[in-house]
Simulated assay, not measured.
Amino acid sequence: MMPRCRRVTAEGLLSLRGLRRLRTLDLSGSSQIGPLDLDFLSALGGLETLHLACCAHITDQSLSSVRSLALLKELDLKGARITDVAMPYIGGLSRLTNLCVKRCSRLTGEGFVYISQLTSLEVLVLAKCVNVRGECLRVLSGMSGLRVLDASNCAKLQDAHLSFIENFVHLRSLRLAECAGVRGGVMRYCEGLSGLKELQISRCRSLSEIDGLFKLTSLEKLDLCDCSCVNDACLAALTALRRLRVLLLDGCMRIRDEGIRHLSSLREIEFLSLGSCAELTDEALRHLTGLTSLNTLHITNNANVSSSGIGWLSRVTVTQ
């Protein structure tokens, strides 16, 4: 591994051609690698993991050398200057299980038809691909083996574009944080994902409702930070999520003490974040005394919480 080796040049990379048993290569942050400097990869036919994150000069042409890596399982292209033209090169990697194109802002999604051919893919990270058009994601509907989908910060994504999610019956993690077009209809498509363990819809400021959330009874991590629709009634619905271990509610300004009372039945909660929930008082902390698995609590920026409220926390008996 050679991450952030900013002085590595094409000449140095050529010396790797003889390492035919190499399985993992991490060149992340190697800023001296040029668009035509990856030809040496064709000699590394046994490579299974390749990280090229934050290599500023990686382009579509660079990836023409990647298509020969028939055994490749993991490919990280975060921040690369690639476009949809590069997608056919990736689409031929039939054994690929993990693909990250986070912050590849030149992608529009037109080439995702090639990604849909990756039948072994389990993890797909599209976060911060701000120019990906939502309608282009529909071609991914056949990827039933997908376990992790991260489409956070995809500004053009809307509820109507997410209907394909209901086909991902093996999905374990869905991340849609900061998707301004997500309004609540997405929950209808998630209802059948019985194995979903993680859901992130934080800072989806247009989110109008989260009905159906209570049906996701396998959830272990739920991030609702800065979702203005979350109120006490929503927290009452969360009582069905008995496996929940991590709950993030920072910035949910409509939550009151009575809402926190509903959380007292979630005995598996280990991590609870209630920062900047302006309506909460000391009474809210009294309701937490029954959370016997709690080991981390964030209550920053809550002006109505005093030392008296903190005193209630001393009554929490954490079981090992």
Rank of each mutant, 00 (worst) to 15 (best):
G251H: 09
I255K: 09
L248R: 14
L248N: 03
L272P: 01
F271P: 00
L249Y: 07
D282G: 08
H298N: 13
S306H: 14
L291Y: 04
L248Y: 13
I255Y: 10
G259W: 10
E268L: 05
S307L: 10
G275S: 15
L280I: 15
L280D: 01
L247E: 10
I299S: 01
S264P: 04
G309D: 10
S293N: 09
N301R: 14
C252Q: 10
T296F: 08
R286F: 07
S273Q: 13
G309H: 10
W312V: 00
S273W: 08
E270T: 10
L272A: 02
L294Q: 07
T281W: 10
A278H: 13
L263K: 11
I255C: 08
E268R: 12
N295Y: 14
G311D: 10
N295R: 14
L291V: 05
W312P: 01
L294G: 04
L249Q: 11
T281V: 04
D257K: 03
S264N: 15
L297W: 11
S306I: 06
E268V: 00
V305Q: 01
C277A: 10
E268I: 00
G275F: 02
S265T: 15
L280M: 11
D257M: 03
I260T: 13
A284T: 05
E283Q: 03
L294R: 06
I260S: 08
L294V: 03
C277R: 09
R267N: 02
D250G: 13
A303F: 06
I269T: 05
M253S: 14
L272E: 01
I269E: 01
R254E: 14
L288V: 02
A284R: 01
L248M: 11
D282C: 07
V305I: 15
R256K: 15
W312F: 15
R254I: 00
R267P: 00
R267H: 09
G275W: 04
L247I: 09
S307N: 13
I269C: 03
L247W: 06
R267V: 09
H262A: 14
S308C: 05
D257H: 11
L274M: 12
G251E: 09
E270C: 05
L274F: 08
T296N: 12
H262E: 14
H262I: 03
A284M: 05
L272S: 02
S306V: 06
F271K: 11
S265N: 08
T281A: 05
L248I: 01
H287L: 00
L288W: 06
S276V: 00
N295P: 00
T300K: 06
N304Y: 09
R256E: 15
R286W: 09
G290F: 02
L294A: 06
L263C: 11
E258K: 13
L294E: 11
L285S: 03
M253D: 12
N301T: 10
A284V: 08
S293M: 06
D250F: 00
S273A: 12
A284Y: 07
E270S: 11
G311L: 04
M253R: 15
S265G: 12
I269F: 01
L285F: 05
L285I: 07
L297R: 13
I269Y: 01
S276P: 01
R254C: 06
